[in-house]
Amino acid sequence: MARQLARGMGSFFKDCSCVKPARCPHRYTIRFRDALGKQREERGFTSQDDAIERLSQLYAEKKATAPSVAEARRELGQQTIREYSETWLPRQRRMAEYSTKENVLSSLNVHINPALGSRKLNSVTQTVVEQFLDDLEVNGVGRGNQVSIFRGLKSILLDAHEKGGIPSNPVKGVQGPEYVRDRVSIPTLGYIEKALSVAHEDLALEITMMVGCGLRNGEARAVNLNNIVADDVYRVHEQIHARLNRPAKLKHRKVGEFREIHLPRAVREAMEKFTERHAATSEGYLLRGPSGYYTQGMEHYRVQKLFKQLPPEEGVGMYSFRHFFASNALSNGMPITDVAEWMDHKSIEETYRTYRHLMPGSITKAARILDAGLWDAA
């Protein structure tokens, strides 16, 4: 049974059939009208005092809201998610233009708008968001894509919430999908040596940059003599973008930002030998194509030809050559913090999750050490 408070404050109750609800373990629910005049509920309050305190807070916020502000929020809340996202996306000036924005736009067009686009902002609740995530899972959307889709939806809804279009935080308490990366496949040194001997010379240099310096494909396609800033230092500041087929800023970084990595002697010599056969462009690029740059399409064609001629080891793909760099560094005792920086991971957690089994302090090695210590103590 709901207990009504002062006029306009709302009520609280337990949604159960217990004989003595005041003493049962079930939690309280509060019911109130928000600043837009729409009835809302919040659950999970452990005591009457907690429920009353929250209702008092909500009532004070509503009373402090000027009528003009409340009306503006009411009008905003009448917009649909599709309408709001059309004005929200152009405002994201800090969002990467050629990758993140494209990903969000794809998520909107393929998943978010078909399912939620016609829903008004003020009708979005945690239950709506959770049902949307459940539907993604049922429809077989990959876990990695689920993470990306939820990230975009969450950003849109939180922005609308901060501007008052959604009174209650619609993603508070929502458990988002978690992407668990499959164990990476790493080519053996023997396979790499064979691949370098039979691959097209452009592809061979790209593979060398990935194996020796840990570059991403696009960064390796942009290999440049001018990036050698010392005998053993290579500066990475751009990539050949996969869709634009021209130089672009690095992933996770702003225009003009760069990272510097150790340049092994063997890699530098490979660049020098390539230059002896093919002079670099006036801008210093070693790899090139009909459009002026060595594109993803050119890389893909040569990778297919290589793997047909030299079938790859199980699970190995082009990106596996970058994984070899991490494997080589970590297995030889390089600090994971350095490896994360060289590979330009967004966080060290990404490096740890991906390459944990390669670290010298892996669980297997730790078990052997601890076991030996126990026997010695005995």
Rank of each mutant, 00 (worst) to 15 (best):
L157W: 00
L157D: 00
A160I: 07
H161R: 00
E162V: 14
K163W: 13
G164Y: 10
G164P: 07
G165E: 12
S168W: 03
S168D: 12
N169W: 03
P170V: 00
G173L: 03
G173I: 04
G173F: 03
V174S: 02
P177C: 15
D182M: 06
V184I: 08
V184H: 04
S185A: 11
I186E: 07
T188F: 07
L189K: 14
L189C: 07
G190N: 11
Y191V: 03
E193D: 12
S197Q: 13
S197Y: 12
V198I: 12
H200M: 12
D202T: 07
L203Q: 06
A204R: 13
A204P: 11
E206W: 06
M210C: 11
G212L: 01
G212T: 05
L215S: 03
N217A: 15
N217G: 14
A220L: 09
V223R: 03
V223I: 13
N224K: 06
I228T: 04
D232P: 02
V233M: 06
Y234Q: 04
Y234L: 00
H237M: 08
H237G: 11
I240M: 06
H241P: 04
A242C: 08
L244R: 03
L244D: 02
R246I: 07
R246W: 00
P247L: 11
A248S: 14
L250Q: 04
H252T: 15
R253A: 13
K254L: 09
K254P: 01
F258H: 14
R259K: 10
E260G: 04
I261F: 02
R265E: 15
V267D: 01
M271C: 08
